[in-house]
Amino acid sequence: MTIIHLIRHGAHDLVSRRLCGRAGGVGIGEAGRRQAQAVSRTLPRPDRVLTSPLQRARETAAVIAAAHDRPLEEEAALNEIDFGDWTGQDFAQLDPLAEWRRWNAERDQARPPNGESMLEVQGRLARWLETLAKADAGTVAAVSHADVVKSVVALALGLSLRNHDRFEVAPGSVTTVSATPDALTLLRLNEVPHG
C-alpha cells in the first residue's frame, strides 16, 4: 500500500485575486511559509517528497523536504491545471464571462479556452497514482494545487467533478489517500496543521 499526503501549496499574495494557473514567478508569501513549516512539523516522515514544477509548490515542498532530510523530486503529474487564455487574469475580469461560469458549473465537461479540462487533469493523476501503487512507494508527500487535489478526492469517492465546490482544499492543507493496485481510498480531507 502507498500512502499519499496531498499538500496544497502555501498561500501566496494573489491567492484570492488572480487565477495564477501556470504563470511563473508566483511564490508563497509569509503566511505560506508559516503554513509550510506547520505541515513539515506535523507530517509523518515521508519516504519521498514530490512537487509540482511551479514555484509556489516548490517553495512549500522545499520546506517539507528539508525538515525530513529528503531530496525534492519534481513530478509533472502534480502540475496545476493549464488555464490557457485565462492564466494570470484577475477573478474580477473572469466573473462576467459566460465561459468562466460554465467552467465552474460543469467541470466534468468544460475547458478553459486553449487550456486543459479538469477531466484531463484527473486522468493524468489517475495514471500517476496507479504507477505509485504498483511500485508500492511507501509514504509520499506530494505538493500540488487545490483543483489537482480535488480531482484526486473526486476520483477516490466516485464524485462527479461538478461537485468540486462541495468541499474545501485550503492553502497549506493535507489530504491523505491510500493507493493499491485495486483501490484508491480517501483517508483524510483538508487537514490544516496548527503546529
Results as ranks from 00 to 15, higher is better:
residue 13 D to Y: 00
residue 9 H to M: 10
residue 186 L to R: 00
residue 136 D to N: 15
residue 26 V to N: 03
residue 32 G to K: 02
residue 126 A to N: 04
residue 69 D to R: 15
residue 81 I to Q: 12
residue 47 D to T: 08
residue 137 A to I: 11
residue 52 S to L: 04
residue 157 L to P: 03
residue 19 L to M: 11
residue 130 E to F: 11
residue 118 M to E: 07
residue 35 Q to A: 02
residue 87 T to K: 12
residue 165 D to Q: 11
residue 66 A to P: 07
residue 178 S to N: 02
residue 164 H to Y: 07
residue 78 L to T: 05
residue 177 V to T: 06
residue 46 P to I: 09
residue 182 D to C: 05
residue 76 A to W: 03
residue 104 N to M: 10
residue 77 A to I: 07
residue 178 S to P: 00
residue 60 T to N: 09
residue 182 D to E: 15
residue 172 G to V: 05
residue 150 K to P: 07
residue 172 G to R: 07
residue 101 R to P: 02
residue 102 R to E: 15
residue 192 V to L: 13
residue 159 L to E: 03
residue 94 L to W: 09
residue 29 G to C: 13
residue 33 R to S: 06
residue 195 G to K: 08
residue 6 L to P: 06
residue 193 P to N: 10
residue 85 D to C: 14
residue 70 R to Q: 14
residue 133 A to E: 05
residue 142 A to F: 01
residue 143 V to M: 13
residue 132 L to Q: 15
residue 11 A to G: 12
residue 50 L to Q: 04
residue 180 T to I: 10
residue 166 R to T: 11
residue 138 G to V: 12
residue 87 T to D: 02
residue 154 A to F: 01
residue 28 I to H: 02
residue 6 L to S: 05
residue 177 V to M: 07
residue 195 G to D: 07
residue 45 R to D: 09
residue 46 P to D: 01
residue 96 P to R: 11
residue 107 R to H: 12
residue 67 A to I: 02
residue 192 V to G: 00
residue 94 L to T: 09
residue 5 H to S: 14
residue 27 G to V: 08
residue 25 G to P: 03
residue 190 N to L: 14
residue 154 A to T: 02
residue 68 H to I: 08
residue 73 E to Q: 15
residue 37 Q to R: 12
residue 155 L to D: 04
residue 58 R to W: 05
residue 151 S to Y: 00
residue 35 Q to W: 06
residue 186 L to Q: 09
residue 66 A to M: 07
residue 189 L to F: 02
residue 188 R to F: 03
residue 98 A to H: 07
residue 92 A to F: 00
residue 56 R to Y: 03
residue 137 A to E: 02
residue 2 T to Y: 09
residue 127 R to I: 06
residue 141 A to Q: 10
residue 118 M to T: 13
residue 171 P to S: 09
